[in-house]
Design a binder for these strands. Structure first.
Lengths: 346, 346
DNA sequence: CGAAGGACTGTGACCGATAACATACTATAC
DNA sequence: GTATAGTATGTTATCGGTCACAGTCCTTCG
């Protein structure tokens, strides 16, 4: 096999087909203004040389953009990973390429450190992160290139004046989950919360926590203090200890399924039965939720669909002729399994 | 705020600083052949205009490459996700950008469908996949651009004539896990296997399965037939049923922790105690392994380190002056928890 | 004092594509 | 038969950089 020579360019194809490079460009981009015979000759030349268009050159020359950069939180989180998966799938189907850059909470993020990640100024971006670095990235991009960015966030259903935002209605889902526990007869529900952004502009509570509070208030129940946890299972295991050891606690709504796993484990280790002594409900319906023991009651979230939606929204914003995706998603649905039940009478 | 004008180019900076575009290029790339005063003026102009180099143009013009494309299996698999994370981390630290493209087993992958994913011919690639599409991608790239590719695979320890391969020694790890079970007193060990590539050139068994066989042979034990599973937990749950219902089976080595979770769940549902009636060992040490009930005995795998290594190896191959990373990894280590124990006497 | 050499900077071609405009050739209409 | 659209194709500039080379200017040395 010959050593890999330099790849064929549009000029090589043009020479072989006996046409100008522009004609080749027309054929490649499917312009109707090419005679069938010419088109065939060019196609043959393309096949013979194994020609592939260079996306970099195409973008540089001002052609149609075909790449997105995703700025995301830690991909080991189920939500981020699933959203990314949705974006990638949709992008691949559209022939786009996806770059990814992780916003590490351990780093300090200046505006420059964010824009520096982009291959070029004006690169289309999707931000998938709810924490501090994510908020910062949102702000930075909104200031520098508002037309070429989309953020996945908590959708409030208020048809916001933020046409770049897309997401799930976490609040409504939390309400539903909390009501489920109250309906089972629990006098109140505790909440083991995922981290939230701490910046000045950022929210103090996640929408998940807010929905939980709202449901308790509406039912006229006591709202116990939120217990905050980190993202990791070991952190959650530590954070949940006081809750699990408190015999007056009969129901815990966890900010996600990882936290719920830690809570169940913690309960098990000190001999409290789930759901007999303690009901535990998760969030996200991760793949393992149905296969834990006890199987986890949780809220199903279609992150992958949101990822797809984010990609479609981005295309729409970049090119008005692409239809705008609907901003409402199959609303999150509670899946009742074995980890929640009525409280023991005493 | 003014509408986002076109971003500043190297020419804009040059004009403002009163130098040639080439001098700006020199400053940006840290050439020593620039007078300090000139450098300062250029730096000031860069700051004032908020100039950022365009990586596309740089690559196109033949400058240093600063991007990798990762071809990977489903990112919802822990191993793929963790490897990707390692690659991304290392790349980000080096100022490179990472593109990602998922090899969907449901698609048929022609050579063209693989090269078409790359932004340009000659784009550096890391392949993270052991299944059919992954093998195909490996072959395709090896044929078209062998110098600009690296694959993460099963490392055999044979210092292979495949300088583009890097990975973990799955075989040795499987031997260790199997011996652990035999040492506990099990007469033999069954194996619930992850899928393998089925193509003609591909291996019929994963190295994990081969290590398991080797350990059984060395101990002179019966080698039961492999039970094959898909990647997903529901598939594993189905596949493992016959094994779990067979009372002569006392120990199962699972191809990964997801399969182990499914096995434990299946055992639980028909009332077989783990590890009392049945010992189960996993592979990978996923984050949830320590928090399952019972906590899972498994083999720790540092996929993230392999990802980092793959990136370093790629840089080394692209640019000989970058040192070659060591090809041996902290060998996988068995972590004994609660899901494995001695068989019940009968 | 002139030549040699190093340090700094500029000029022009080029990477692989697209956009805008120009031109040649065909039909169709008057 | 000629003006009038189209249709098919070519030409040139441009995108934002790097590379190779060519000049300056100032030292340093014989």
């Amino acid at each position: 096999m010959a050593a890999a020579k330099k790849a064929a360019s549009i000029w090589d194809v043009a020479r072989l087909a006996g046409v100008s490079h522009q004609t080749v460009s027309r054929v490649v981009n499917g312009s109707p203004r090419v005679a069938p015979g010419t088109r065939d000759r060019v196609m043959d030349a393309i096949a013979e040389l194994g020609y592939r268009p260079n996306r970099l050159a195409r973008t540089l020359a001002g052609g149609a953009v075909q790449s997105v950069t995703v700025l995301t939180a830690d991909t080991s989180l189920y939500g981020s990973e699933a959203s990314l998966r949705g974006i990638e799938k949709a992008a691949r189907a559209a022939g786009w390429s996806v770059s990814i850059s992780v916003l590490d909470p351990a780093e300090t993020h200046s505006d420059a450190s964010i824009t520096m990640r982009l291959p070029r100024a004006g690169e289309p971006v999707i931000v998938v992160a709810h924490d501090d670095p994510g908020m910062r990235a949102r702000r930075t991009l909104l200031a520098s290139q508002p037309e070429a960015m989309v953020a996945i966030g908590e959708y409030t259903g208020k048809e916001p004046d933020e046409p770049w935002l897309i997401g799930l209605d976490d609040g409504a889902a939390a309400v539903e989950a909390t009501r489920h526990l109250l309906d089972l007869g629990h006098s109140t529900v505790h909440h083991l919360a995922i981290p939230t952004a701490k910046g000045t502009e950022a929210v103090l509570k996640s929408h998940r926590a807010e929905g939980w509070i709202e449901a308790l208030r509406q039912a006229g129940r006591h709202v116990p203090p939120v217990v905050y946890s980190g993202w990791s299972i070991p952190e959650a295991f530590e954070a949940v200890q006081p809750l699990v050891r408190d015999e007056t606690v009969t129901a815990i709504l966890c900010g996600n399924d990882d936290l719920a796993l830690a809570a169940i484990r913690a309960a098990h280790l000190i001999g409290r039965d789930v759901p007999g002594d303690l009901s535990i409900v998760g969030f996200d319906n991760t793949p393992f939720a149905a296969y834990m023991t006890p199987a986890l009651t949780t809220v199903n979230q279609d992150f992958e669909a949101v990822g797809r939606g984010a990609f479609e929204l981005l295309r729409h914003r970049l090119d008005g002729s692409v239809p705008k995706p609907k901003p409402c998603w199959p609303s999150p649905e509670l899946i009742v399994r074995d980890s929640s039940g009525p409280p023991k009478r005493r």
